[in-house]
Amino acid sequence: MNLSARMIVVLTAVGLISGSFLSVVGLLTKERIAMNQQLEIQNAISEVLPSTKTSHKVFEDESLTIYESRDENDNPVGFAVYASGTGFQDIITLMYGIDPSFSKIKALTILEQKETPGLGAKITDKTSFLRYWEGRNCEQPLSLRKPAVESPGNLAPSEVNAITGATISSEKVLDIVNLSLERLKEIKQKGQLSSEEKNAT
């Protein structure tokens, strides 16, 4: 066999073998990865709305997914809002729980982020960032408090602490929440929240 034929044969063979091997690995792990994501959403819902017993999707588009959550007596607990937007470096995906009347944020959790490790990545940290979001009044857009204060009691009702050294990441999270809040109220006004088909999750 001449050289160029051999080069083609070897590279094609290696490519084919690798490719078929990878498609097997992809098939084997696909379900598990999808399951992990599903589980992550469910865990996130019970994290932001702790008394959740059942939840179902009531709205979905590219940047926003809304789940309605009910407790064991089938009373509404509130809505879990799954939203994403650009962060300092890459997309930030987060979820927060809000009461049925859209007046208070119950809790916030960050699902995906690639912010600067040790600085912006602190948006996932309970003690230095997330806990200041609990019980914030969200009837008007939330605002950022800088420099951060130690006790949540010193914040205005609709203020949240910025992270020292990561103002941009904190702002981006704030923007995602404010934007989704705005859209949430809009969607409710249009009556699209209940008209959606109810898919049990």
């Binding site: 290696v14 690798s18 690995v25």
Partner: peptide
């Protein structure tokens, strides 16, 4: 492996194992 295409071949082999490692971590150690 013909020496002219050795680097390309190595990269294909390496990339395959990297993808396996990546999928494995995503599936079992999210």
């Amino acid at each position: 492996i013909p020496s002219q295409v050795r680097i390309a071949t190595y990269i294909v082999i390496i990339a395959s194992f990297v993808t396996i490692a990546d999928r494995f971590l995503a599936a079992f150690f999210p």
